[in-house]
Nucleic acid binder design. Structure first.
Length: 392
RNA sequence: UCCCCCGUAGCUCAAUUGGCAGAGCAGCCGGCUGUUAACCGGCAGGUUUUUGGUUCGAGUCCAAACGGGGGAGCCA
């Protein structure tokens, strides 16, 4: 037994302490010897077929969340494993390097709240976690974006390294790149353009990689990371538009809706071909949050970007120029299906005036996975929360 | 099944984060005009889906119900 499943046939229902939010996962043991954990996903039976990372079709109603199948060790085995210890040392060096770089760029580190009356809507499929805050419903932050923008009324350039919690769909447990709890290196610069923060992101990642290459040779070697490949992150990052990415995918026979986000497999395809990290810019309006600013010169396109790693590691970071005009924020909220009334304090600040800005968030665990060459993102966390898997 | 959004005049929708519910079309009255998606002026039109709650005050916030729409391996 893995210590998390119950006796065969027993069903667990886990609920958090909040008054409304309920975390539900049906769990029952399966298999003769192992402690199978079968999870019933919240996906309709007529949903498109799911595929695992190797493209194998998965049965959406019966796929297993078996800890062993996901290669998840016990918490204690994980913490004391030499590989985990090497990963943590690399991650430490990454964080030191990030702070070193941002300090030299005169970017001020802040500590944003982890709970608040409202948070970024986040991914469509992800749920937010409610917290009972003296009888009022507060939420665990899914992003620091609202605080980043408002904080710029008092600072020119800020960053935060903060946890985010998003209850991703159970299917993301097998993507090797989703965690329900993760950290972002969140940077925001007043008055900056998208291109300026893209360059900043490139230099930040470059600095982090430089430090790890010089100071963590032993760890990277222990982890089996190919450093010649990693050092290509020191080259200038390539850039393509979303439209170009779509065309490239279509040419490869990969179906891709030009008006939609690039899907998981398409992103991996682009990533696996790339020699070095690269940006995808100008996503079509409609798939991103209300805070991504629409291009004034090219309506329908957002002035945003994603940063993807080579080698199939996929997305590392995401950023944009922000919308800061009160009226346009309200309009964009409506367009993206948000109720402006819920964003009281943020809109009040926007009405009073928040500066134009651009910024980005780098997924710390994803970047660690890339730098350290880890097969799965959960290996970049000491106490990983793989979606749907109950873990300390 | 879960999450989110919406429900305002007969119809299509406003009301910009709590402060006197508005417009266009349709309807009715009158005017103008060989009209044809007519035009001009006027009139009428509402228990803001329902029930409860918070508030000095609710279309707006909260809870529940009903109805409609969207989303659910992309969005670190």
């Amino acid at each position: 037994m893995d210590g998390c499943g119950g006796p065969a046939g027993r069903r667990h229902r886990h609920r958090d302490a909040g008054p409304r939010h309920v975390v539900r996962a049906a769990v029952r043991a399966g298999g003769a010897v192992g402690s199978g954990r079968r999870v019933t996903p919240t996906v309709p039976a007529d949903a498109p077929p799911l595929h695992d990372e190797l493209g194998r079709p998965m049965d959406s109603t019966t796929f297993s969340m078996n800890r062993a199948e996901l290669d998840l060790p016990s918490p204690v085995d994980h913490v004391r494993s030499p590989r985990t210890r090497a990963m943590v040392r690399v991650q430490n060096r990454m964080l030191d390097a990030a702070r070193e770089f941002l300090r030299d760029e005169s970017v001020t580190e802040i500590r944003p709240p982890i709970i608040g009356p409202v948070t970024d809507p986040g991914g469509r499929g992800a749920k937010q976690v409610d917290v009972d805050y003296y009888g009022r419903r507060y939420r665990l932050m899914t992003s620091a974006i609202l605080y980043k923008q408002v904080t710029l009324t008092g600072f020119d350039a800020i960053y935060a390294i903060a946890p985010n919690v998003r209850l991703e769909p159970l299917e993301t447990a097998v993507t090797h790149r989703h965690l329900a709890e993760f950290h972002q290196i969140d940077v925001e610069v007043a008055g900056a353009s998208r291109d300026e923060v893209m360059l900043l992101a490139q230099r930040l990642v470059g600095h982090i990689v430089t430090r790890c290459l010089s100071d963590c040779q032993g760890e990277l070697s222990e982890l089996g990371r190919e450093t010649a490949e990693l050092s290509r992150a020191l080259e200038p990052f390539d850039r393509m538009t979303h439209a170009e990415a779509v065309a490239a995918l279509m040419d490869s026979g990969h179906p891709q809706d030009p008006g939609a986000e690039i899907d998981w497999q398409g992103e991996e395809l682009l990533s696996s071909r790339a020699p070095r990290p690269f940006f995808v810019v100008d996503y079509p309006k409609g798939s991103r949050g209300f805070y991504d600013r629409e291009s004034p010169s090219e309506p329908g396109l957002l002035r945003n970007f994603d940063l993807l790693a080579p080698g199939g590691y996929g997305e590392l970071a995401s950023g944009s120029e922000r919308e800061y005009d009160y009226g346009r924020i309200v309009t964009r909220m409506r367009e993206t299906g948000e109720n402006p009334a819920k964003y009281g304090w943020y809109l009040e600040a926007a009405r009073a005036g928040i500066p134009a800005s651009a910024g980005f968030g780098i997924g710390l665990e994803r970047l660690t996975r890339y730098v350290a060459g880890l097969p799965a993102v959960w290996q970049a966390s000491l106490y990983p929360k793989v979606p749907g898997v109950f873990a300390p």
